[in-house]
Design a protein around this nucleic acid. Structure first.
Lengths: 94, 94
DNA sequence: CGCTTTATTGCAATATTGTGCAATAAAGCA
DNA sequence: TGCTTTATTGCACAATATTGCAATAAAGCG
């Protein structure tokens, strides 16, 4: 498997904002307009972060009226987050 | 746990070169001068990538004479790589 | 010491990323 | 249709990352 594809996925996780988004979506579907106040960022910025996550295949969306609801695209994503958290923890411990 | 720390670790994985390095180190300890021809990059570049991985807590080193041997710093790292590979795969499949 | 090998750092050029404002689009409702 | 809400895109600016060359450092050997 190509390292570039793997790095693509990792790159999507390489931003505190996007990690935060994934963690919020672990709790369930959210629309962009709910994320905006939680993240304290301009709607355009949130939209772009979601686009990055979507291009990496980590989130999916569906429209509901004027809103677009976002969700994790795979049950493996929480696993990946736990993995990263563990390693970040080990590092902290040092 | 702070999203910044998690993103730090992910950022270290967000480069094809560094993913490649981790995969090579999965097979066992290697010194920088072994990695250079495998990666086809300038020694200075390899050194900097190793420094990034080290700062993220993903690799550790020990000196042996004039060489510095690098190894994965945790058995969880292969797990993390498999996780990322799976997600990269799922995305490819789409 | 001088020489070789390996690794790191200073520097500059280039590329990529993150951000916010403004403009635009897409859906629903009166 | 016009208005509101939500989302996206164009643009510019600032910050970061990646790379390679050159210089320097660190270790061992004759």
């Amino acid at each position: 498997m190509d390292e570039r594809h793997i790095a693509e996925v990792a790159k999507a996780l390489a931003s505190p904002v996007r990690v935060r988004i994934l963690r919020i979506l672990e709790e369930g579907e959210r629309c962009g307009c709910e994320l905006v106040p939680l993240l304290g960022l301009d709607p355009s910025v949130v939209s772009r972060h979601l686009a990055v996550l979507s291009r990496a295949g980590l989130v999916e969306s569906r429209r509901e009226g004027v809103r677009i609801l976002w969700r994790l695209s795979s049950p493996e994503i929480p696993l990946l987050l736990r993995c990263l958290e563990n390693l970040a923890c080990e590092k902290e411990a040092v």
